[in-house]
Design a protein around this nucleic acid. Structure first.
Lengths: 182, 182
DNA sequence: ATAACTGTACCGAACGTTTGGTATAGTGTC
DNA sequence: GACACTATACCAAACGTTCGGTACAGTTAT
């Protein structure tokens, strides 16, 4: 099987256990592949697995979120589409964010640049929607950040309370929150 | 030296490296104590160290935040005091949240109940301030959650961008954001 | 036959933890 | 005051286990 097959499984593992906690034994067990097979597909080891997941997420973002934000149409509708996609990505708030997880532990040193770039690209795209809708550029930029903050924070809280409703509420309110007049 | 001496150091370590990433070697190096000495102070090993830090944070919360919220006075002032305290705790946004870190990796299974309790207590206290100020109970509860979301999210974003300004902006805006009429 | 893939066995290093023991400061006894 | 004793704090070394990673022979598919 091509290595892309195992990316969703790896994503799940790193989200659940983090970089340091996702040992090769767990990865081997979850994927059903022996260590040799894992190193056949990912010669760079665990780091290459993370990079592959990160690339997958980048492609997923560029395929499922960014085009929806950049196409023509009113801002509210576009942001609602984005939220629907994010709802699926985070499984309704039951899954933490892979990017946030990579910011902690020994993974941070290695993957921080890529994570930062992903965040910046996403925030810029959200701000772009608001700017196109006629909102002041500085305000738009700040609301893009606020959206990222709300989503990340609600994911943390949903994990803390073991209850997806904070995330779901944020996702539902976010589009009109971002498009408000003031 | 009494073991309480080492708690701030442990807090710093777990925040920086996470539970799985904070190895006993690093803990030994950072505290200046040999591994066996660590087991003298914390017979339960790494788990007991985390519990000690968690207890410390609970006491810190009950000493520095909750009384300020429960005392008499107007809501805005009380929330500003809370934000000042949190600003110090998170070192102006340069440090991640210990609680959020314990929600990831193998620590989650062990410490989730205590983390959840801490979050609930904090959110309830914030909601209490707003209820006392005459805000509808359901709205107050939701704004307490929103405050936790904003702080946690801004800490994540500050880590992601390697820039404390998202956290600082949230902290500065939070009190009046929570006390707004609608 | 050849290339892609995998299972088994193995490696050095690092993990959390335990052992066995030393140095020091205090305490009760004479 | 001198002595035996105890509690506390600390450490070097080693424990068994698991880590990430490798070597290689065997299997599968084309």
């Amino acid at each position: 099987m091509p290595k892309e097959t195992y990316i969703p499984c790896l994503l799940q593992l790193f989200r659940q256990y983090g970089y340091d906690g996702a040992t090769l034994s767990k990865i081997s067990e979850a994927t059903g592949l022996g260590k040799a097979s894992l190193y056949h597909h990912f010669p760079g080891g665990k780091d290459e697995m993370v990079t592959a997941v990160l690339d997958f997420l980048e492609q997923w973002l560029e395929k499922n979120v960014l085009p929806a934000l950049r196409c023509k149409g009113d801002a509210l509708t576009k942001l609602k589409v984005m939220c629907d996609r994010l709802y699926d990505l985070y499984e309704g708030g039951h899954q933490p964010c892979m990017l946030a997880i990579l910011l902690m532990g020994s993974a941070r040193d290695v993957f921080h640049p890529q994570v930062k770039a992903l965040f910046c690209g996403w925030i810029d795209a959200m701000a772009g929607v608001l700017i196109e809708a006629g909102i002041d550029e500085a305000v738009a930029k700040q609301r893009g950040e606020d959206a990222a903050i709300a989503i990340q924070g609600s994911l943390v809280l949903s994990q803390a309370l073991d209850d997806p409703s904070p995330f779901q509420r944020v996702i539902q309110q976010l589009p009109m929150q971002m498009c408000r007049a003031f």
